[in-house]
């Protein structure tokens, strides 16, 4: 379903550093219904990847939709995706549009 999102881009972030290094805000039942990237920390995996930018909205994490998920649940999904040893990358489906 994510592939049907207009203007969405799949970004694969290799786990190249010990942290992912993004801050997100938003989630279901807030003013920002899908998580938005508000900070990218220098030296983190996301920064090293070079394709994530502040202001982008995260639609999916490893194919799991974040629609309807509250902030903590979305944050947990991303944290788990970074922690798991099953993959040495995280796939983010992102959009520039809010």
């Amino acid at each position: 379903p994510g592939l049907l999102e207009p203007m969405s881009t799949l970004v694969r972030v290799p786990k190249s550093a010990s942290t992912l290094g993004i801050a997100i805000e938003g989630g279901a039942n807030t003013r920002q219904p899908l998580p938005r990237i508000v900070t990218i920390q220098r030296g983190g995996s996301a920064h090293n990847c070079g394709q994530l930018k502040v202001g982008q909205v995260i639609l999916e994490v490893n194919g799991i939709s974040l629609r309807g998920r509250e902030h903590r649940e979305a944050a947990c999904l991303i944290a788990e995706a970074f922690k798991t040893k099953e993959k040495d990358y995280i796939d983010f489906l992102i959009t520039e549009f809010n």
């Binding site: 993004i22 801050a23 997100i24 805000e25 039942n29 807030t30 003013r31 903590r72």
Partner: peptide, 15 residues
């Protein structure tokens, strides 16, 4: 517009 005003702001989480 009205709906936006009534929804709370989100917390921010560093990951």
């Amino acid at each position: 517009r009205e709906k936006r005003l009534t929804l709370p702001p989100s917390e921010i989480t560093l990951l």
